[in-house]
Design a protein around this nucleic acid. Structure first.
Lengths: 122, 122
DNA sequence: GTCTTTGTCAACTAGTTGGTTGATAACGCG
DNA sequence: CGCGTTATCAACCAACTAGTTGACAAAGAC
Protein backbone atom coordinates (compact mmCIF):
# COMPACT_ATOMS: atom_id res chain seq x y z
CA UNK A 1 0.00 0.00 0.00
CA UNK A 2 1.66 3.20 -1.15
CA UNK A 3 1.95 6.43 0.80
CA UNK A 4 -0.35 8.33 -1.53
CA UNK A 5 -2.95 5.65 -0.80
CA UNK A 6 -3.22 6.64 2.86
CA UNK A 7 -3.25 10.32 1.92
CA UNK A 8 -6.10 9.68 -0.51
CA UNK A 9 -8.00 8.03 2.36
CA UNK A 10 -7.46 11.12 4.51
CA UNK A 11 -8.25 13.68 1.80
CA UNK A 12 -11.46 12.03 0.63
CA UNK A 13 -12.58 11.41 4.23
CA UNK A 14 -11.80 15.03 5.13
CA UNK A 15 -13.90 16.40 2.26
CA UNK A 16 -16.81 14.05 2.98
CA UNK A 17 -17.92 16.42 5.76
CA UNK A 18 -19.91 19.49 4.67
CA UNK A 19 -18.52 21.67 7.47
CA UNK A 20 -14.99 20.85 6.37
CA UNK A 21 -15.82 21.50 2.71
CA UNK A 22 -17.22 24.88 3.79
CA UNK A 23 -14.02 25.63 5.69
CA UNK A 24 -12.02 24.83 2.57
CA UNK A 25 -14.31 27.03 0.48
CA UNK A 26 -13.82 29.95 2.84
CA UNK A 27 -10.07 29.41 3.11
CA UNK A 28 -9.83 29.50 -0.68
CA UNK A 29 -10.66 33.21 -0.45
CA UNK A 30 -8.41 34.15 2.46
CA UNK A 31 -6.44 32.76 5.38
CA UNK A 32 -8.24 32.98 8.73
CA UNK A 33 -7.84 32.27 12.42
CA UNK A 34 -9.66 29.45 14.20
CA UNK A 35 -11.98 31.92 15.90
CA UNK A 36 -12.90 33.65 12.66
CA UNK A 37 -13.55 30.31 11.02
CA UNK A 38 -15.67 29.05 13.92
CA UNK A 39 -17.84 32.16 14.20
CA UNK A 40 -20.55 31.34 11.61
CA UNK A 41 -21.19 27.77 12.79
CA UNK A 42 -23.52 26.67 15.56
CA UNK A 43 -20.73 24.67 17.11
CA UNK A 44 -18.05 25.03 19.75
CA UNK A 45 -14.61 26.42 18.91
CA UNK A 46 -13.12 23.08 19.94
CA UNK A 47 -15.20 21.25 17.36
CA UNK A 48 -13.92 23.54 14.59
CA UNK A 49 -10.37 23.11 15.88
CA UNK A 50 -10.84 19.34 15.49
CA UNK A 51 -12.14 19.76 11.94
CA UNK A 52 -9.08 21.84 11.13
CA UNK A 53 -6.86 19.08 12.53
CA UNK A 54 -8.51 16.60 10.16
CA UNK A 55 -7.88 18.95 7.23
CA UNK A 56 -4.28 19.43 8.39
CA UNK A 57 -3.64 15.68 8.70
CA UNK A 58 -4.93 15.32 5.15
CA UNK A 59 -2.43 17.95 4.02
CA UNK A 60 -5.19 20.27 2.81
CA UNK A 61 -4.25 23.00 5.26
CA UNK A 62 -1.29 24.35 7.23
CA UNK A 63 -1.30 26.46 10.39
CA UNK A 64 1.05 29.32 11.13
CA UNK A 65 1.77 31.26 14.32
CA UNK A 66 0.96 34.89 15.05
CA UNK A 67 1.10 35.57 18.81
CA UNK A 68 -1.76 33.58 20.33
CA UNK A 69 -3.49 33.42 16.96
CA UNK A 70 -3.02 30.42 14.65
CA UNK A 71 -3.72 31.52 11.04
CA UNK A 72 -4.92 28.69 8.79
CA UNK A 73 -3.79 28.49 5.17
CA UNK A 74 -5.18 26.33 2.34
CA UNK A 75 -2.66 24.22 0.40
CA UNK A 76 -3.57 23.80 -3.25
CA UNK A 77 -1.16 21.00 -4.20
CA UNK A 78 -3.00 18.17 -2.49
CA UNK A 79 -5.99 18.72 -4.75
CA UNK A 80 -3.88 17.43 -7.63
CA UNK A 81 -3.60 14.01 -6.01
CA UNK A 82 -7.38 13.67 -6.01
CA UNK A 83 -7.85 15.14 -9.46
CA UNK A 84 -5.31 12.72 -10.88
CA UNK A 85 -6.98 9.70 -9.29
CA UNK A 86 -10.43 10.79 -10.40
CA UNK A 87 -9.39 11.68 -13.93
CA UNK A 88 -7.69 8.37 -14.49
CA UNK A 89 -10.81 6.33 -13.84
CA UNK A 90 -13.31 8.80 -15.22
CA UNK A 91 -11.41 8.71 -18.46
CA UNK A 92 -11.35 4.92 -18.63
CA UNK A 93 -15.04 4.71 -17.79
CA UNK A 94 -15.84 7.24 -20.51
CA UNK A 95 -13.70 5.39 -23.03
CA UNK A 96 -15.67 2.24 -22.28
CA UNK A 97 -18.83 4.25 -22.73
CA UNK A 98 -17.55 5.51 -26.10
CA UNK A 99 -16.62 1.96 -27.10
CA UNK A 100 -20.17 0.87 -26.25
CA UNK A 101 -21.43 3.59 -28.56
CA UNK A 102 -19.04 2.32 -31.22
CA UNK A 103 -20.33 -1.24 -30.80
CA UNK A 104 -23.90 -0.03 -31.11
CA UNK A 105 -22.97 1.94 -34.23
CA UNK A 106 -21.29 -1.16 -35.61
CA UNK A 107 -24.40 -3.24 -34.96
CA UNK A 108 -26.50 -0.63 -36.73
CA UNK A 109 -24.09 -0.65 -39.65
CA UNK A 110 -24.20 -4.45 -39.81
CA UNK A 111 -27.98 -4.30 -39.88
CA UNK A 112 -27.78 -1.75 -42.68
CA UNK A 113 -25.33 -4.01 -44.47
CA UNK A 114 -27.69 -6.97 -44.09
CA UNK A 115 -30.51 -4.85 -45.41
CA UNK A 116 -28.31 -3.88 -48.34
CA UNK A 117 -27.40 -7.54 -48.84
CA UNK A 118 -31.06 -8.51 -48.84
CA UNK A 119 -31.82 -5.73 -51.29
CA UNK A 120 -28.93 -6.87 -53.52
CA UNK A 121 -30.22 -10.45 -53.33
CA UNK A 122 -33.76 -9.55 -54.29
CA UNK B 1 -28.44 22.70 1.75
CA UNK B 2 -28.66 21.77 -1.92
CA UNK B 3 -29.15 18.29 -3.30
CA UNK B 4 -25.68 18.12 -4.82
CA UNK B 5 -24.37 18.86 -1.31
CA UNK B 6 -25.65 15.54 0.03
CA UNK B 7 -24.38 13.72 -3.06
CA UNK B 8 -20.92 15.26 -2.53
CA UNK B 9 -21.02 13.93 1.04
CA UNK B 10 -21.82 10.45 -0.25
CA UNK B 11 -19.31 10.45 -3.13
CA UNK B 12 -16.37 11.69 -1.05
CA UNK B 13 -17.25 9.32 1.80
CA UNK B 14 -17.56 6.42 -0.65
CA UNK B 15 -14.11 7.05 -2.12
CA UNK B 16 -12.48 7.49 1.29
CA UNK B 17 -12.32 3.68 1.62
CA UNK B 18 -9.43 1.96 -0.22
CA UNK B 19 -11.46 -1.18 -0.93
CA UNK B 20 -14.14 0.92 -2.59
CA UNK B 21 -11.56 2.88 -4.60
CA UNK B 22 -10.15 -0.45 -5.76
CA UNK B 23 -13.62 -1.61 -6.79
CA UNK B 24 -14.03 1.58 -8.81
CA UNK B 25 -10.60 1.06 -10.39
CA UNK B 26 -11.50 -2.47 -11.45
CA UNK B 27 -14.95 -1.46 -12.68
CA UNK B 28 -13.35 1.21 -14.85
CA UNK B 29 -11.95 -1.63 -16.97
CA UNK B 30 -15.03 -3.83 -17.15
CA UNK B 31 -18.41 -4.53 -15.55
CA UNK B 32 -18.39 -7.44 -13.09
CA UNK B 33 -20.66 -9.46 -10.82
CA UNK B 34 -20.54 -9.21 -7.04
CA UNK B 35 -18.85 -12.61 -6.79
CA UNK B 36 -16.15 -11.69 -9.28
CA UNK B 37 -15.52 -8.42 -7.47
CA UNK B 38 -15.37 -10.09 -4.05
CA UNK B 39 -12.97 -12.87 -5.09
CA UNK B 40 -9.59 -11.09 -4.61
CA UNK B 41 -10.37 -9.64 -1.17
CA UNK B 42 -9.91 -11.36 2.19
CA UNK B 43 -13.46 -10.46 3.11
CA UNK B 44 -16.93 -11.99 3.00
CA UNK B 45 -19.17 -11.59 -0.05
CA UNK B 46 -21.64 -9.74 2.15
CA UNK B 47 -19.06 -7.13 3.04
CA UNK B 48 -18.36 -6.44 -0.64
CA UNK B 49 -22.09 -6.29 -1.32
CA UNK B 50 -22.32 -3.59 1.36
CA UNK B 51 -19.43 -1.64 -0.20
CA UNK B 52 -21.23 -1.80 -3.55
CA UNK B 53 -24.37 -0.46 -1.89
CA UNK B 54 -22.38 2.53 -0.62
CA UNK B 55 -21.03 3.15 -4.13
CA UNK B 56 -24.55 2.79 -5.55
CA UNK B 57 -26.05 5.23 -3.02
CA UNK B 58 -23.37 7.72 -4.07
CA UNK B 59 -24.42 7.27 -7.69
CA UNK B 60 -20.99 5.98 -8.68
CA UNK B 61 -22.33 2.60 -9.74
CA UNK B 62 -25.51 0.97 -11.06
CA UNK B 63 -26.57 -2.66 -10.83
CA UNK B 64 -28.25 -4.65 -13.59
CA UNK B 65 -29.97 -8.03 -13.60
CA UNK B 66 -28.85 -11.20 -15.37
CA UNK B 67 -30.61 -14.23 -13.91
CA UNK B 68 -29.30 -14.58 -10.34
CA UNK B 69 -26.25 -12.48 -11.22
CA UNK B 70 -26.21 -8.73 -10.58
CA UNK B 71 -23.67 -7.10 -12.94
CA UNK B 72 -22.19 -3.86 -11.58
CA UNK B 73 -21.48 -0.92 -13.88
CA UNK B 74 -19.44 2.22 -13.21
CA UNK B 75 -21.12 5.57 -13.93
CA UNK B 76 -18.70 8.23 -15.14
CA UNK B 77 -20.94 11.30 -14.81
CA UNK B 78 -20.79 11.61 -11.03
CA UNK B 79 -17.05 12.18 -11.20
CA UNK B 80 -17.78 15.54 -12.80
CA UNK B 81 -19.52 16.78 -9.65
CA UNK B 82 -16.37 16.16 -7.63
CA UNK B 83 -14.02 17.52 -10.26
CA UNK B 84 -16.03 20.71 -10.53
CA UNK B 85 -16.03 21.24 -6.75
CA UNK B 86 -12.31 20.53 -6.47
CA UNK B 87 -11.30 22.66 -9.45
CA UNK B 88 -13.23 25.67 -8.22
CA UNK B 89 -11.33 25.90 -4.95
CA UNK B 90 -7.99 24.64 -6.23
CA UNK B 91 -8.08 27.43 -8.79
CA UNK B 92 -8.87 30.12 -6.21
CA UNK B 93 -6.18 28.83 -3.88
CA UNK B 94 -3.64 28.87 -6.69
CA UNK B 95 -4.64 32.38 -7.71
CA UNK B 96 -4.02 33.50 -4.14
CA UNK B 97 -0.68 31.72 -4.29
CA UNK B 98 0.16 33.61 -7.49
CA UNK B 99 -0.87 36.87 -5.85
CA UNK B 100 1.44 36.09 -2.93
CA UNK B 101 4.25 35.63 -5.42
CA UNK B 102 3.34 39.00 -6.91
CA UNK B 103 3.46 40.63 -3.47
CA UNK B 104 6.85 39.09 -2.76
CA UNK B 105 8.10 40.32 -6.13
CA UNK B 106 6.80 43.77 -5.29
CA UNK B 107 8.59 43.73 -1.93
CA UNK B 108 11.81 42.69 -3.65
CA UNK B 109 11.38 45.51 -6.14
CA UNK B 110 10.82 47.98 -3.32
CA UNK B 111 13.99 46.79 -1.63
CA UNK B 112 15.85 47.18 -4.89
CA UNK B 113 14.36 50.64 -5.19
CA UNK B 114 15.55 51.50 -1.68
CA UNK B 115 18.99 50.18 -2.49
CA UNK B 116 18.96 52.29 -5.61
CA UNK B 117 17.85 55.28 -3.54
CA UNK B 118 20.67 54.75 -1.09
CA UNK B 119 23.14 54.40 -3.89
CA UNK B 120 21.77 57.59 -5.44
CA UNK B 121 22.12 59.37 -2.08
CA UNK B 122 25.69 58.30 -1.57
C1' DG C 1 3.17 40.24 38.42
C1' DT C 2 -2.49 39.36 37.19
C1' DC C 3 -6.18 39.27 33.61
C1' DT C 4 -7.94 38.35 28.96
C1' DT C 5 -7.67 36.38 24.58
C1' DT C 6 -6.85 32.45 21.60
C1' DG C 7 -6.51 27.96 21.01
C1' DT C 8 -5.36 22.97 22.24
C1' DC C 9 -5.81 18.75 25.08
C1' DA C 10 -8.49 15.17 27.63
C1' DA C 11 -12.52 12.62 28.77
C1' DC C 12 -17.01 11.48 27.74
C1' DT C 13 -21.31 10.33 24.79
C1' DA C 14 -24.35 9.19 20.85
C1' DG C 15 -24.35 7.74 16.36
C1' DT C 16 -22.02 5.69 12.27
C1' DT C 17 -18.95 2.41 9.88
C1' DG C 18 -16.88 -1.89 8.41
C1' DG C 19 -16.77 -6.18 9.34
C1' DT C 20 -18.82 -10.83 10.98
C1' DT C 21 -22.38 -14.93 10.80
C1' DG C 22 -26.93 -17.00 9.77
C1' DA C 23 -31.23 -16.96 7.28
C1' DT C 24 -33.62 -16.03 3.10
C1' DA C 25 -34.86 -14.86 -1.72
C1' DA C 26 -34.48 -15.53 -6.78
C1' DC C 27 -33.10 -18.04 -10.46
C1' DG C 28 -31.32 -22.06 -13.57
C1' DC C 29 -30.65 -27.01 -13.83
C1' DG C 30 -31.47 -31.96 -13.14
C1' DC D 1 -40.16 -30.80 -7.81
C1' DG D 2 -35.56 -30.40 -4.99
C1' DC D 3 -30.69 -28.63 -5.41
C1' DG D 4 -26.86 -25.56 -6.17
C1' DT D 5 -25.59 -20.78 -7.21
C1' DT D 6 -25.70 -15.85 -6.50
C1' DA D 7 -26.67 -12.24 -3.85
C1' DT D 8 -29.32 -9.56 -0.23
C1' DC D 9 -31.28 -8.92 4.48
C1' DA D 10 -30.90 -8.87 9.61
C1' DA D 11 -28.63 -8.86 13.89
C1' DC D 12 -24.66 -8.22 16.15
C1' DC D 13 -19.90 -6.20 17.51
C1' DA D 14 -15.55 -3.40 17.75
C1' DA D 15 -13.68 0.79 16.23
C1' DC D 16 -14.13 5.35 14.85
C1' DT D 17 -16.50 10.09 14.36
C1' DA D 18 -18.49 14.41 15.53
C1' DG D 19 -19.94 16.71 18.93
C1' DT D 20 -19.94 18.16 24.05
C1' DT D 21 -17.71 20.22 28.54
C1' DG D 22 -13.82 21.38 31.55
C1' DA D 23 -8.98 22.24 32.30
C1' DC D 24 -4.92 24.31 30.76
C1' DA D 25 -1.04 26.56 27.88
C1' DA D 26 0.80 30.66 25.56
C1' DA D 27 1.00 35.26 24.56
C1' DG D 28 -0.32 40.27 24.90
C1' DA D 29 -2.39 44.00 27.79
C1' DC D 30 -2.86 46.11 32.10
Amino acid sequence: MSDGMEQLNLVFAALADPTRRDLVARLACADATVGELAEPYDMSLQAVSKHLKVLEDAGLVTRGKDAQRRPVHLEAEVFDLMTKWIERYRQRAEERYQRLDAVLDELTNEQNQQRTDRKDAS
